[in-house]
Structures are given as C-alpha cells and as structure tokens.
Write a protein that binds this DNA or RNA. Structure first.
Lengths: 259, 259
DNA sequence: GCAAGTAAGTGTTACAGTGACACTAACAGG
DNA sequence: CCTGTTAGTGTCACTGTAACACTTACTTGC
C-alpha cells in the first residue's frame, strides 16, 4: 500500500558484485553461476474418461517424503529439452503414451512446496482417449493407476475406482489437480477439447457423455447435438454402430478453423 | 504415431543410479544435486494506457548478449520467494511500482532461448493506471521507458513513443509480449481487468477508451455503457467532472461477485 | 412374427446478450 | 447567445442458449 521495498536480496551474492547502479545494470553484470538454482520439474495431470466418469493418472511414491502417497506423474526437465518436451517424455516413460493433447497449465513455485529442497514445477494437463491407454507392461498396478474424480464439498476429490474415501495427494498436487480440473471445464465451452478423449470415430452420444463427465453435470441431448453440428466440428461418416437398439451414426472430428 | 520412445536420457546421470525399476522408482532414488539445474527468471509484461494507446515498459540492456536492445523487466527468482513474489519485487525495484494487478502468463523454456546458458523464464503480465507510474527517480530515461504497441502485419509491434520503425526485443521477449497481448485481449471480454488501468474514480468514457486501447478497435458507446452497467461492475459516485463541455459522472469499480 | 426393451434421433419456443444505429443535454468560452 | 465539445440515452434485428417429449430402428426372447 505504501512505498514498495526497494532492495531486498536474501540470496547468496558474491560481495564484489554488490556495487551501485540500477537493478538493470546489476543484472547485466550478473553471473548466473553465483546464485543458487532451483530444480525444475514437470508434473502432468493426465485425464481420461471411462464409463462416463473423469479419471486421473496417479503414481505411488516409494520413498520419503510422502512415502506411499499418490502423486502426479512427472520428473525433471533436462537441459536440452523444453518443459513440454519433458512432459511428453515423462508421459511416454511412465504411461507409455505419446502423441496426445498436452497444454501448459501453470507454474507452481511456492517455496516449501517440496519439503526437501527448492523445486519449481511447470504443470501440464493432458487428455487421452481411454482406448489408447495401456499402462506400461511390467508396471505393477499398485504403482500406477487411474483414479476417479468427484466433486466433493471442498472442491474436487480423488477416489479409488473400487470405492472408499478420498485419497490424499503428495506435495501440492491436490492444488495442481484442482487447477487443472477448473481449466478443462472452462475451456470445454469454447475449445473442442472433448474430441481428445475419444477415438477417431464416435457417436454423438459418446461425445455428450464425455462432455458430461468433464463438466460433472448432465446436458440436454437435442441442444448438444444441435450445437456441435451447427459449429461444424463434426462430420458424419458412412458407418453406423448398433447394439440391441437403433444403430448410431459414427462421426469424425473436423478441424474447420483453428483459432 | 507409432511406439513412443521409452528411455532417452541425454542428461549427466550418475551411473550408479542407472539401475532397473520403473521411472517412478528411479525418481525416488534421485539425488537432485546430481543434475544440472537451470537458472529461473521472471519476466514481466507491464501494460498501461496513456492517451488512448496501449504501452509496455521496456528496459535497455547494457551488456551482451543483445547489448543495447530493449527487453522486458525481470530477474532471477530467489530461493525464499515464489515466482509471483519475484515478479512483484522486480517491479518494485525496476519501476518503483507495487500493489498492482499481476497474473502468471506462461513459462518459456525453449532450450536456446538464452544464448549463454540454460534459463527458464516464468512470464507475468501486469496492469497499472498511468497515473501511478513514476519511473524510478535517478533512472535515466534512456534506460527504462514506455513503448507503444501497434498491430502490424506480423502480429503486434513495439514502437518508440516519438515515432519511428518497430523496435526489436532481446531474447524471445517478442514472443512473450505477443502472448501477453493475446491474453489480455481474450480476458477483457469476461473478466473486468480494464479497471486496473484506471484510477479509483473514472468516467465511463475513460473506461471505454481503455478497453478500446487494449482491444485495438473502437467500441459502440451505447452498447458499452449498457453492458458495464447491466453487469453491475460499476457504481456512480456523487461527483462529476467537467471541462468545456457537459460534465461526466464519475464511477467506481464494484466487485459484486468474483468468480 | 411380434412384443418388449433400449438407445438414437429430431423441432419449437422463450429468453438473454450483442451489435448496429442518431439524436439531445450540459457545460465553457468567446 | 452562438459555437464547440463531450456526455448521455433507446430500439430493433439477430444469434445463441435452455427448456421441453415423442418417434425410429434395431435386438432379443417368447
């Protein structure tokens, strides 16, 4: 409210650099090696929809801190890759999944978010069609698994697929997850991200189910169908798919004009 | 499209850690100190509106690389602060401005974005009322200055206030700036950020001018006034302000319900 | 072969927000 | 009191959205 702090520098700085001049001048003389540097990781919130419900991929931690707690997949960024590269690499390594929709979410940098050391995390969110999921062969199912998302009293909760109470996440991963859920819900209204959660061909009912799972609320069938068709996001194929009922038209996603 | 890459690790890794087990297990055994770590900076795109035109704050570089080029204000994150703290601190130090609207924009991490070393930057954008700007006393005006933003052929361009051709920015700061402009334009439609660019009391014409400056296009007077009043974002005060013309009602921003 | 079950598919109406459009009101200065 | 200048005000057409129920096409079991 009052006058701003002008110089507060609680970092280890080589004394010979602490001379006069503006901050801008100071920065130019700066030797990056003189400062402590953080570790920088990526964390990925990978969503899918199975049986009409939204799910996230989590990985069980084997060591302290947060031993045996569930955490988002992720890892360190390497020096020759971008954060997005790192996120894609980690997804390939930990879940055997590549070529998927992935966008940067937010960068979490609260000091103390990792109790051991200074770690900044660039979070991403990603979407996969449940058909494309094959958890890595040789991975014990007790180490990597999908969890249900439910809207609880205090925001979104994570539950085991089998049932049971809410699961606690390691670090600030609950916050990251909440941010990601908020983001995809907000985005679904005006960007066609729902298609990322479906195979190439799908029925309009399947598409609607996916939207309902993401938003956590039911949608009107006629309005939904009218909208996606009016927006030209979808194109009928020649095939149909049936069961013990009227067969459904199969559609493809069509990218008529991207932003 | 085909099978994803499973293990590519071009980083310096202590050989004794490269044993079997999943990536998840590997991470647990990980010693953060063994890896090279990046420097992490913040860069801030500080906007204001003066005389109906959008401006950004830039700082002239004194050293190589990009000696004498203009760059966004910014600096290193310290170990005891969050990225947002760092951004606010840098704004206070470099522009003498505090208590302003500031939001995270995007994290830029392309390897090679800094030609010297590995630097990841968490970018922020910020808005100030032009009345609150007092460039730091003692700062040479040739080192820190406001620049006009214009919509050119290939995206947004930076121009000196006096005139002249487009100015080139250091590093990937042109990309950061373009991202920031896109973001505030998109956000203006559904979040009342325009008020951040005005003093506490303002006329509706002033508010409209600010919106027009941000969007880079004219708006209809009646529609604009109807909208802000219908949304209840604004409350009339008792004062008016006049010149050689009909006096204008002064309004205050009212935060009726935030998200 | 027909009845029951099941999911697919289809239109209309009311309401809200948006964009286009032109004139009158209130003041200062000469 | 005339001129210049900015403030202020309403309507209509269009578009998108939300609410609402019945018919169609197939499979299965009798």
């Amino acid at each position: 409210m009052a006058s701003p702090p002008r110089k507060s520098r609680p970092e280890p700085v080589p004394p010979e650099l602490e001379t006069g001049g503006t901050q801008a001048e100071f920065l130019q003389r700066y030797d990056a090696d003189a400062y402590v540097r953080p570790s920088v990781t990526v964390d990925i919130v990978l969503f899918t929809v199975v049986e009409g419900a939204l799910r996230v991929l989590l990985i069980r931690r084997k060591k302290h801190p947060f031993k045996d707690a569930w955490a988002l997949p992720g890892g360190f960024i390497h020096a020759d890759e971008s954060a997005e590269d790192a996120a894609r690499r980690e997804l390939a390594e930990e879940a055997g999944i590549s070529d998927i929709f992935l966008e940067q979410l937010y960068t979490f940098s609260n000091p103390g978010r990792d109790p051991r050391t200074w770690v900044i995390s660039v979070a991403y969110y990603a979407l996969v069609a449940s058909e494309r999921l094959h958890l890595r062969a040789g991975t014990d199912a007790s180490d990597v698994d999908w969890f249900l998302l439910k809207d609880g009293r205090s925001g979104v909760e994570v539950h085991r697929v089998g049932g049971g109470g809410p699961v606690e996440l390691a670090f600030d991963h609950a916050e990251i997850l909440a941010t990601a859920v908020k983001r995809i819900r907000g985005k679904l209204d005006y960007v066609p991200i729902g298609f990322q959660l479906l195979p190439e061909r799908f029925t309009l009912s399947e598409l609607q189910t996916v939207h309902e799972a993401v938003l956590g609320k039911p949608l009107d069938k006629r309005n939904f169908r009218a909208k996606v068709q009016r927006d030209g996001l979808v194109k009928a194929t020649k095939e149909k798919r049936g069961g013990a009922h009227r067969p459904a038209q199969l559609f493809r996603y069509v990218d008529n004009k991207r932003e």
